[in-house]
Design a binder for these strands. Sequence first.
DNA 1: GCGCTATCCTGTCAGC
DNA 2: TGCTGACAGGATAGCG
Length: 461
Amino acid sequence: MPELPEVETIRKVLQQKIKDRTIVSVKVLDKRIVKLSPSIFINSLEGQTFNAVSRIGKYILFTFKNDLVLVSHLRMEGKYFYLSKEDRNPPHSCVVFYLDKGYRLCYADVRKFGTMELTSVTDLTNLASIAKLGPEPFDATPEYLYQKTSATKRAIKDVLLDQSVLAGLGNIYVDEVLFLSKIHPLTQANLLTRNDTVTLLKHSVDVLNKAIVAGGTTIRTYQTLDGKTGEFQVELLAYGRENEECYACQSKMKKIFVAGRGTTYCPNCQRIKDKPLMIAITGMVGAGKSSVLAHLEKNGEQVYDADKIVANLYNDKNIASLISKTLNVDLHNENEVIDRDKLIKYLQDDISNLTKLTDIVHPLVKKELERIFASSNDKRIFVEIALPYSYRINELFNFFIGIETSKEKQSEYLKIRGDDFVIVRPDEEYFKNRFKLDYIIFNDRTLDDLYNSIDNILHHF
DNA sequence: GCGCTATCCTGTCAGC
DNA sequence: TGCTGACAGGATAGCG
């Protein structure tokens, strides 16, 4: 996934290898890469001599001695190989440039996302892909960035990825820049201050410069055409560090999806301004989640119970109708809301019905929690939720507290409650995701001990 | 016009 | 062991 530092590293090596070399012939092995007729592409390039290799944003520009420019974008997996007579073309070769003295410049692209276009030096800035590029972070001013961010409500991560705003940053470096700037990736761009844009630009320039010195970042398959890999991955502070400790505060790094991109951030260092912290209280069935929630509420905290949200959904006529219609089964009672007895029977008839139901209900719970989050003025919100990791509901939460108890205590509790048959799945789910939790409380003593344990955690938020 | 999502594409890996 | 589906993400088309 080459971004500006990787492209710059590749450009430097290309410049050394192919300057003043002449293209004897060209073979287009995959037409999808070349954005014009292959025959025109080939005829235009044969006999041309490379003059310089430059770069704008993530685009590589091969300039020839007759004013022609080959504009190449590597997208996700594009690579150049400089090969001698004896070397075989690498797998997934798409375009081969046969050079003088028997050498070849080969473009290979596993996923065929890369592009090649032809233009002239004079028309370069009119080429659509180049014309819309914003300045690189090295050339942008805080005033420019502030003008761009204040004009949109999009998430700041989305804006920084937009090449028409700033050219050169991609998913990896945006995560790094936001981490260093202590800005949450989902922060609405128009809520940033001018000082924030100063910080963002400063860190953008710093990160890109450091990565260029390190020869780029090798996450998956990136390498330069002389086979070297980048070294910046060892310096990454955020990208790809989900569930690892934040280098600044030791909180567990979280992963969410922003603008369809995997995004890693620190929930403690990168908080959304003026928005509450969302803290999930999860854990084993019968371990004391509800007691913890009641204790927090008594102490003036804002609390919600996901089970109550579900119960409210079942009592909503529109939702009840949607559930019955989607599942194609009558679950109404005479008041047109969900009938609990019918629902339990429906679930007992076929265990796979549970998944069908949660496919409808869990996204609605997520929506309701999003609404609560968006409209709240509280400092923090606690939500008791048995399955926070399904349907990406976890993306709403900054921290997770797990409550556990001994098997003996749990069975005692379940005997009193008398419904242990439904409990297996939540506990399985809980233990599957246990390693992602920020705090775990083991509750096998008194209620006061449980309350003390939760109170001791609160000062972290 | 803005904001969001699907699409392109294939190797890799986790889960069953 | 082998199959399936999710995921990786830069750029863009298309939809509401």
